[in-house]
Structures are given as C-alpha cells and as structure tokens.
Design a protein around this nucleic acid. Structure first.
Lengths: 223, 223
DNA sequence: TCTTTTCCGTTGGAAAAACAACAGACTTGT
DNA sequence: ACAAGTCTGTTGTTTTTCCAACGGAAAAGA
C-alpha cells in the first residue's frame, strides 16, 4: 500500500497531507487496491456500489451501450480523479452505467461511511480530508456541468469547438493532445464519427485549427 | 429566519435535525435569505460565488444564452435542492451560467467555509450536517449524470422518451405533470421547439403517450 | 367583454447529421 | 517482413433537424 502514497499525495483528495497521515488513513479507511488491464470492466451496469473510488493511475471511461450497440462515453476519469461519488448515498440503487479501463489502470477503493463517521475529533487530519473530499466532489460536479455545456451545443462543429477550446484552456496551450481516438471522441460528444471527421477537416481547411493524429493546434481568429 | 425552519426540515441537507439545531446552525453559518420574482436573475454569468445556496421554495433554471440568443437550460433546481456547489472550491473562478427564477422563489445563502472549518468537535449536529451535505451534493451529481444521459441520445424522439420515462419513474406514476412549457422543454433537451412538438405528436399518434398541456401519460408497449 | 399577447401545433424548404461503404495509412502480431 | 486488423478521411444517399412563418386556442390584461 505504501507505494501508492506518492501517487495519492498529488491528488486533490489527499493534498496537504503528510505521507504518514495518508498511510494511516488508508488503513483506517479500509482501502483496497485493484489493477485493471486495458478494456477490462471495473464495474458493470446493474452492480451495487458501496465505496468511493480514486483512480491512482490510468484512464477510465464511464459509458453506456444501448440495445442497438450505440456507445456513449458519458465521462472520462483521469488519473487522480474520483468516481462513484454519485452512489455514496445509502440506497442509491444500482449503477446506471459501465465503467471500463481505457488503458491499464490502478483503482483504490475506500469505505466512505468511515470517512463520514469515524473519529471526527480524534484524528487531526480528518478535517483536512473532509474538506478535500468536498472540493474533489465539487470539482467533479463542475466537470459534469462542463460536459453538459458541450452536449447542449446544437451542431457537431460547435460541440467540437467548445470541447477543443476547453481542452486548450485546461492544458494551458493552444497545442495539445487528447486521449480519445476519433471514434471515442465521437462517442464522447454523441455524434457520428464520419460526420465529425468531416467537420474536423472543414475546420482545418478554414484555417481554424490543425491536427495530426491526437495532437491538435487551435489558431487565433485573425492571423 | 424561524419561518424557514419547517421548510428546511424537509430538505436532504437538514434532514434528521431538530428545529432548534437548525435554527442555531442558521445563525452559526451566517445564513441570509432573499426572495426573487419570476424571471428575476439570482446570479449572472461572470459573477463570483462564495456561498452555497439552497432553494427553500420555487423553481430555478441554470441556463446559458449564446451570442445568437440561443437559450440552453442546463439544469432545473427544484425546491429543497442546493446549487452553487460547483463553486465552493476556493479560486474556482466566476460563474459560467445564469441562474434565473422560473417562478417566485426563496433562496438561502450559507457560508460553506464555516460548515467545513468551524467547531468540528464542538457541535454534535455538525457530523450530521456534513454527512447530509455529502449526500446532497452526491445526489446533485447523480442528477447531472442523468441529464447527461438524456443529452447523449442522438435523436429528438429518444431524448424525449428518456426524459419522460425518467420523469414518470421519479414521480412514480405513468401519468404526471412537468414544470416546463414546450419552449423550455426544448431548451432543456437542446432541440428545436417545433421539431420537438412535431415529434411529440407523432409519439401520440403512434399510441405511445398522450398529453394535454403539461400533463403527460405514458402507455405500455403492448396494449 | 374585448383586445392583446403568449403558447402550441403544423407545414414546407434549407441545412445538417446520420448512415453505409470504401480505400489508404498505420499498427499489431506472428 | 508479411498478413491481418484497425483507424481515419472521403463520398454519395437518406433521414432528421433546423428555421421561418402562420393560424388557432388559450391566457392575460384592460
């Protein structure tokens, strides 16, 4: 368990906590670790969730497949992010979506009930952890709203532009890489792949952006 | 402030707390109240948010209007729900959307920092409040994912069906009312109003549902 | 009660997206 | 190095959505 401490230190959930504090918390919180290969399911739709999970390394997709095989990627979980936070409420029912490893991933499982009930006064790090947990869930919330704003764009072009410009802002550069391949990006934005590919090329031909494989560059409007 | 206690008792955030406890908390948390008329702005895009808000009564829309006047209703806040939870992280920037009263509404403002820092051991209700707050944000999160799943449907018809069937489930009846008028529903699902109206009538003609004004009834597939 | 305004369904033409199919470039595995 | 498989761009056709416009019904206001 020790080797995950350095990873966890960099996450929002455990920020501003010392190595020893984290380690003792991992024990106190009944933490478990599991590793997943690319393509492996972490959870399937219909399962019961009791824990709060944090992705120590790798990348996950929260996705949904309908009766006709249409895939929708509802959200992407990146290293250091939490997931399952929507199911920490008791009796919140079964999982609505699949969770699948988009690449080799390591997941830590925590017993949430313990964070909320055990030793509120006893351990001095507890207050810090609670605060971090709020901020983390709050952040998650914000990213969900952000995704909602991509999805509420009416056209494929505008979905692309809002997603790409947000990604540029997030990575703090007009030149950046994304983790999706074309099909995944289309599933993420809920559009047709070929139509999206077409639209991307139009945007390139109009001089608004450029791309090679997964590396995109956005240009200013006036050049 | 006393008259809001009975309202707050029914919310998830203050459930399982006594009247006196709630009242003393309202003071401790620096709670403020404001009333809004229908159509009035609660917040505008670009403002800074410091508090966590709970809607004591009424109905709010979180919405966004683009340069061309296209309106998108990102979310609807119902009585007893919280909002602004995405901005409780320090330095989380300015509000991305407008918040507007869809009907006459009463909003309570809380200082979040106090909930997280003040008297973790001193007051016995604090643990309960923290737990409730987690559950509330978690619930909010779930409803965001739910909305994402409507939005990720490819066609107007499927957006309608997924929204309406969820609403039937939520209200626990195949016959139910919605709070949106047609234009608002279209803005909520990010589709064109007339096309949506058209699709609704097709669904009615096919015998899948019926409606009069805002009252909908869904039918079984086999009758 | 009468007028004005809003809401809703309907229609037809324009625009966009979905779909299917294919070919070349690139990867992967043997 | 070769074969098999995957990923991406491209094209043409079909389907769906968007948009603008209109009229009737219902609601609001004078």
């Amino acid at each position: 368990m020790k080797k995950y401490v350095s990873l966890l230190k960099r996450t929002k959930l455990f920020s501003d906590l010392g190595d020893d504090d984290i380690l003792s918390m991992l024990n106190c919180l009944n933490a478990a670790v599991r590793h997943y290969n690319k393509g492996e399911y972490v959870f399937r739709q219909g399962e019961y969730i009791h824990d709060l999970m944090i992705l120590a390394s790798g990348r996950l997709h929260i996705q949904k497949e309908d009766y006709w095989g249409n895939l929708n990627i509802l959200n992407e979980i990146r290293s250091g992010e939490i997931f399952g936070e929507a199911y920490i409420v008791p009796d919140s029912g079964t999982l609505m979506n699949d969770v699948i490893a988009a690449e080799a991933s390591t997941v830590l499982f925590f017993n949430v009930e313990r964070i909320l009930t055990v030793c509120p006064s006893a351990c001095p790090f507890h207050t810090r952890l609670l605060k971090n947990m709020f901020y983390t869930i709050s952040d998650k919330n914000k990213s969900l709203v952000q995704k909602l704003s991509y999805m509420s764009e009416r056209s494929t072009r505008e979905k692309l532009l809002s997603y790409l410009s947000d990604e540029a802002k997030r990575q703090n550069s007009s030149s950046f890489s994304i983790s999706f391949d074309r099909q995944q990006l289309a599933d993420f934005l809920s559009v047709d792949r070929s139509a999206m590919s077409n639209e991307l090329c139009k945007l390139r031909d109009e001089g608004m952006l450029d791309f090679h494989k997964n590396k995109f560059t956005l240009y200013e409007k006036i050049r």
